[in-house]
């Protein structure tokens, strides 16, 4: 049995008076890929954003319950969300590189967190991150070119490189392939599989095939509830809940 990296207990999320997440309990293991699936508006992205407190930026959003990373309550008043986000990296749905050079995109995180003492170390971090994100070969000759000039798939890999450059322990991915074509998607999926060696990856996806391909554990969300959470194989072959079965067989959602 692997250690649990993240444990969530009785998590409730409200947007104003609307409850978006109801009573979610989930344990996310270290060095695994966990997929969140479910129809649109079921709260899977909202829950993902609770894990690095990105919901703090939304004024009307309120989170209750207990979310722990390595046993530490991340909603404790003593926790600085900035420090948390260095530990829990995030890749967004739409590729959103900074309108700066490829190098600066990757180097930004290490710079603000003081991870590199000098230029050589920073260069090394940038190269390592780009290699991990499988972008090094394409980008090494044009590090000074703007990141926004890359193709969609390359941009998303750049965003992944940027996220892993701060050496996070958890990587959250919010539908990272929804804006990509099948070839770029395949590259990113391959990448996710490799990243599993070093991080705990949590991925939100609309594509059940993708969840089946990349994840070891899958959580199915429906209308704000966590309906079922189990080994990916089990969810897709032998789900316990009828709602899960309906969803994966295409009858709801």
């Amino acid at each position: 049995m692997q250690d649990n990296k993240i444990t969530a207990r009785n998590v409730q999320v409200y947007y104003g008076d609307n409850q978006a997440i109801k009573d979610v309990n989930v344990d996310i293991a270290d060095k695994t890929v966990t997929a969140f699936i479910g129809p649109s508006g079921c709260g899977k992205s909202t829950f993902l954003r609770c894990l690095n407190r990105m919901n703090d930026t939304i004024d009307i959003c309120r989170v209750e319950g207990d979310i722990r990373i390595d046993g530490e309550d991340i909603y404790d008043p003593k926790v600085d969300p900035v420090q948390l986000r260095a530990k829990v990296g995030m890749v967004f749905q739409k590729p959103n590189p900074f309108p700066k050079s490829i190098y600066d995109n990757v180097a930004y995180g290490p710079k603000i967190h003081g991870l590199a003492r000098n230029k050589a170390e920073l260069d090394e971090i940038v190269e390592k991150s780009l290699r991990k994100a499988a972008l090094w070969n394409e980008a090494k000759d044009r590090l000074a070119a703007p990141g926004t000039g890359l193709s969609g798939g390359q941009q998303q890999r750049l965003c992944i490189a940027r996220a892993i450059a701060t050496s996070p322990e958890v990587l959250l991915m919010d539908e990272p392939c929804s804006a990509l074509d099948p070839i770029a998607t395949a590259q990113v999926e391959e990448l996710i599989d490799e990243l599993r060696q070093s991080f705990s990856v949590v991925i939100v996806t609309h594509s059940m095939q993708q969840a089946a391909r990349v994840s070891q554990k899958t959580a199915f969300f429906h209308l704000g509830n966590l309906v079922e959470y189990d080994e990916t194989d089990k969810i897709f072959t032998n789900p316990e809940d009828p709602r899960t079965e309906s969803y994966i067989s295409g009858r709801i959602g």
Binding site: M54, Y108, I112
Partner: peptide, 20 residues
């Protein structure tokens, strides 16, 4: 999305405003 990106890599609010 630019603000999200900056916050996502652990920039503080002020860093995200002044850097990006």
């Amino acid at each position: 999305s630019i603000r999200d990106a900056a916050l996502g890599v652990g920039a503080s609010k002020m860093q995200s405003v002044f850097h990006h």
